[in-house]
């Protein structure tokens, strides 16, 4: 019954004696950091992203001493319960919403049409078209705003709602085209061919296949256009005349001191957008499950 391992005369190799010692706490700590370096960096980046938002939200509950809302004084719900104490704030938000709404509809429509032409048709002048779409995105906003103002002044056009709207549609179109084009280019052309093969004429194919499949792209383009328009300051500042949008109100108020109501509106915009996106995600997930 003698097997080689039982022969103790020769010192046997026992692998258990050679298991490396568990490293010390410091080494393990450093190793943990090294393994999670990306996660740590991501968390720090998120911290950087949310730091200003936290300040905005916190100071919306401040009761500032004097006009400047920069030093913490005491907790108060005044700004939240009385957002429109200075009616010009709410008026300016109303103006911004109106402009953003109309500009979004026009820019999304025009931009979507261009995307369809670019992705679905062959035509002369494609390169020139692409360049014309790209240039407004590559042009600094001051240049866009300034040259547009020069045009309006030359034409003697009264500055106000109309001129702001024109400017916003102009710089939103390119972003819409880029967004919708990406979605459209990712659409398998065979789906539309299959629809045509299944007795759908051009119009029905568009209505029942193309449009439903491109719609998510059009919606995100619209949201992008809305937020770009609502938030624009530089171009609007050239073409507003005496009409005050929300960013212009904030800019103007800065000289006298920004009231905490501005922080309330900033917080509302943040939480509102967050809520919309989260709800859209939940609805989307529920629909996919079904």
């Amino acid at each position: 019954m003698s097997t080689p391992t039982v022969d103790r005369a020769v010192a046997p190799f026992d692998p258990r004696d050679h298991v490396a010692k568990k490293p010390g706490a410091v080494v393990r700590g450093l190793r943990w950091v090294r393994e999670h370096i990306i996660g740590i960096a991501a968390v720090l980046a998120l911290f950087y992203l949310f730091l200003p938002i936290a300040i905005v939200v916190i100071f919306s509950f401040n009761k500032p001493v004097g006009r400047q809302n920069v030093a913490w004084n005491e907790f108060s719900l005044d700004a939240w319960t009385n957002i429109c104490r200075d009616p010009t704030i709410c008026e300016s938000v109303g103006v911004s919403l109106q402009i953003a709404f109309v500009a979004t509809i026009i820019a999304t429509l025009l931009g979507t049409l261009i995307s369809f032409a670019l992705v679905r048709h062959r035509f002369r002048g494609r390169t020139a078209t692409n360049l014309l779409i790209f240039l407004p995105m590559a042009t600094p906003e001051v240049v866009l705003g300034a040259s547009l103002l020069a045009l309006f002044l030359n034409l003697g056009a009264p500055l106000g709602f109309g001129t702001i709207l024109i400017a916003h549609v102009m710089f939103c179109i390119s972003f819409v085209v880029v967004t919708v084009k990406a979605r459209l280019a990712g659409l398998d052309p065979r789906l539309e061919q299959a629809a045509m093969d299944l007795y759908a004429d051009e119009r029905s194919t568009f209505r029942y296949v193309t449009l439903p499949l491109v719609l998510p792209g059009i919606i995100s383009a619209g949201l992008l256009a809305f937020s770009l328009s609502f938030d624009d300051f530089i171009i609007t500042n050239f073409n507003n005349g005496t009409l005050v949008t929300f960013p212009l109100y904030v800019w103007g108020a800065a000289q006298r001191g920004i009231p905490p109501q501005v922080n309330v509106i900033g917080s509302l915009m943040f939480f509102g957008a967050l809520a919309i996106v989260v709800i859209a995600q939940i609805v989307g997930a529920a629909r996919r499950k079904k």
Binding site: R190, Q193, A194, A195, M196, L198, Y199, A200, V209, L213
Partner: peptide, 27 residues
Amino acid sequence: PYQRPVNTVFQSYALFPHLDIFENVAF
């Protein structure tokens, strides 16, 4: 294509991803 008494089974099928199976067949 939609005027012809001809139907196609496409390579990689080209099923409509936004419609369920019933609606695909009913299309």
